[in-house]
């Protein structure tokens, strides 16, 4: 997995609540058997019209946000389905960090498996960052995972909370399966005990 340490980049504002995974990547793009190549279809139905032309108003179609690496959004980002195609599409587009007041559980977990940092901050902090993002390409936001801080283009600093294990894995680009495999002995022991206790499983 890709490491995430620090990131300074353009933040795109998306002041919508309940951005769901169907918006992030509509189902017609789930028919792939690969993880890559989904970036062009990120937010497809908001980004393109029926004929496949770009909708100029959509934030990621605006010239100043085409290179955005950070997304600032409303409450409950990523709600809906478990599709990992959502973080795959976000990453493939080039976004490595999403900032919102809250995230849906499965989406939040899926981000970490793909080197994306989802940052939950209080609404007031997100409001400040949203304003900052609205300034366009000159306003660069800095995210520091080690220090757990987000710094606006004006130098205002917000600190965010994060699970220590998730942080460790993301900072070091660790592969979950490899880590778990190191605990195979515990799993073996548990499995043997469970087979005794609940043989019908």
């Amino acid at each position: 997995m890709d490491k995430f340490t620090t990131l300074t980049g353009i933040a795109a504002p998306m002041p919508l609540v309940n951005v769901d995974t169907d918006m992030i990547i509509p189902k017609q793009f789930l028919k792939t058997i690969k993880r890559s190549g989904l970036g062009v279809n990120l937010f497809d139905e908001m980004r393109y019209d029926q004929d496949g032309n770009e909708i100029p108003d959509f934030v990621l179609n605006q010239p100043q946000y085409r290179e955005a690496e950070i997304l600032v959004a409303g409450d409950n980002f990523g709600c809906g389905s478990s599709r990992e195609h959502a973080p795959w599409a976000i990453k493939d587009f080039g976004i490595r960090c999403v900032i919102a007041p809250s995230f849906a559980d499965i989406f939040y977990n899926n981000c970490f498996k793909n080197g994306i940092l989802p940052i939950a901050l209080p609404q007031e902090a997100v409001d400040v960052l949203m304003k900052d993002a609205e300034k366009g390409a000159n306003a660069r936001v800095t995210v520091d995972l080690e220090a757990q801080t987000v710094t606006t283009s004006d130098g205002e600093v917000f600190t965010f909370e994060l699970d220590s294990f998730k942080k460790h894995c993301l900072l070091n680009g660790l592969d979950d399966i490899g880590l778990t495999m190191e605990k195979a002995a515990s799993i073996d022991t548990f499995e043997a005990q469970a087979a005794q206790a609940r043989p019908w499983v």
């Binding site: 993880r35 809906g80 389905s81 478990s82 599709r83 990992e84 973080p87 499965i106 977990n109 899926n110 498996k113 793909n114 979950d176 399966i177 778990t180 495999m181 195979a184 799993i187 499995e191």
Partner: peptide
């Protein structure tokens, strides 16, 4: 790998949806 796995909770089972990386994790490690 589907969010509506919660359905199985009706039986008093702890059931939830996971992403594809987690599907791989469960396949490999249970």
């Amino acid at each position: 790998g589907d969010s509506h796995t919660a359905t199985h909770g009706a039986f008093g089972a702890l059931a939830h949806g996971i992403g594809t990386s987690e599907v791989e994790h469960v396949l490999a490690t249970q």
